[in-house]
Simulated scan of single mutants.
Amino acid sequence: MPGQQHTPVSVQTDAGVMTITIQRPEARNALNAEVLTHIADAVDAANADATVRAVILTGGEDNFSAGADIDMLSGHTAASYVVSENRHAFDRIRAARVPVIAAVAGYCLGGGCEIALACDVVIASDTAVFGQPEIRLGIIPGAGGTQLWTDRAGPGAQAMAALTGAPVDAYTARRIKLVDRVVPSGCAVSAAQSLAAQLAAQAPLALRATKAAMRARWGMTLDAALGHEVAVMANLLASGDANEGITAFLEKRAPEFRGA
């Protein structure tokens, strides 16, 4: 329609699944302040909405994101970068309380790669290319990229990515466990939708609690994280969903979870 304002990120919610799509095809979905704010705001909304049970984060079937707009980094001092809203947006994205599935095609580089690897599951099209090219600009991955590769693929893969800036293709990424599944070109989003529908059918309290228990390991020792897991499980056992799930299993019927 004439006068309709284009938004660089679309957000749609259907049947308990929120889909966040980066829409800057002219820039290969490069991240700028507006894109990061829209994504972070959508994640905050998902956290606050008990009806949202899973999130898909994608750039469509051409490119996930070729990285951050370089001019977003220019002019920063050491102090201003640390407190910048752009950097803080990555923290907000990682703070998603619901399971997040990255549906990746084409370029997934720099900050785009850091966002994808912060998701719980990464589904990649066979066109996907992953990399952290920051060293070629005289900087480092500054939004999780020096840590997230190690969590998924180990320190060797992390070193190669961060120290050389060399990208890896989808099948190499799957072989080193950087991604969880590779699908044919044009199928990344539909594969993510299928998985998200499966997640949305689970007990919502248990979904969020499972993610909280898994992510606790990021900031705790193993013993502390195991203790946290026990506490989360104990609280869940007092919920109506847990009672319904156990009762339904014993009665050989499908459970009807209510998120309480």
Rank of each mutant, 00 (worst) to 15 (best):
M18H: 03
G245I: 03
A224V: 12
L36A: 06
L237F: 15
G110L: 04
S80Q: 09
D44K: 13
P25W: 09
V17W: 04
A33M: 10
A201S: 11
I101F: 01
A170E: 00
A33F: 10
A260R: 10
L163R: 12
I140Q: 13
R217W: 01
G67P: 03
V129N: 00
L199G: 04
L57V: 07
Y81T: 07
R94G: 09
A46V: 03
M214W: 06
G165R: 06
A248K: 05
R94N: 15
L117Y: 00
E251S: 14
I56R: 01
G156M: 14
A103V: 04
D49M: 09
P2W: 11
E229R: 15
G142Y: 08
A188W: 00
A89W: 02
L31E: 02
W218I: 14
Q4H: 11
I246H: 14
G111S: 00
T13K: 03
G240E: 11
T13Q: 07
G75Y: 08
A27I: 07
T21P: 11
S194L: 10
T77Y: 14
A196W: 01
V55H: 02
I93R: 01
P167Q: 04
D241R: 01
Q4C: 12
D223F: 11
A224W: 07
G240R: 08
T247H: 07
G154M: 09
V122F: 00
A216I: 10
R217P: 06
T7H: 15
T247M: 11
S74L: 13
R28W: 03
L178E: 02
V230Q: 14
Y171S: 01
A170L: 04
D49I: 08
L57T: 03
G144S: 09
G112R: 02
Q12R: 12
A128D: 02
S10W: 05
T7D: 15
A15L: 10
A54M: 06
V189P: 00
S194E: 13
L73V: 10
L178S: 02
M214I: 13
S10M: 13
R174M: 10
A105G: 05
G219M: 15
T51I: 07
A66M: 15
D49G: 12
A254T: 14
M233K: 14
E244N: 15
D91L: 12
A159D: 11
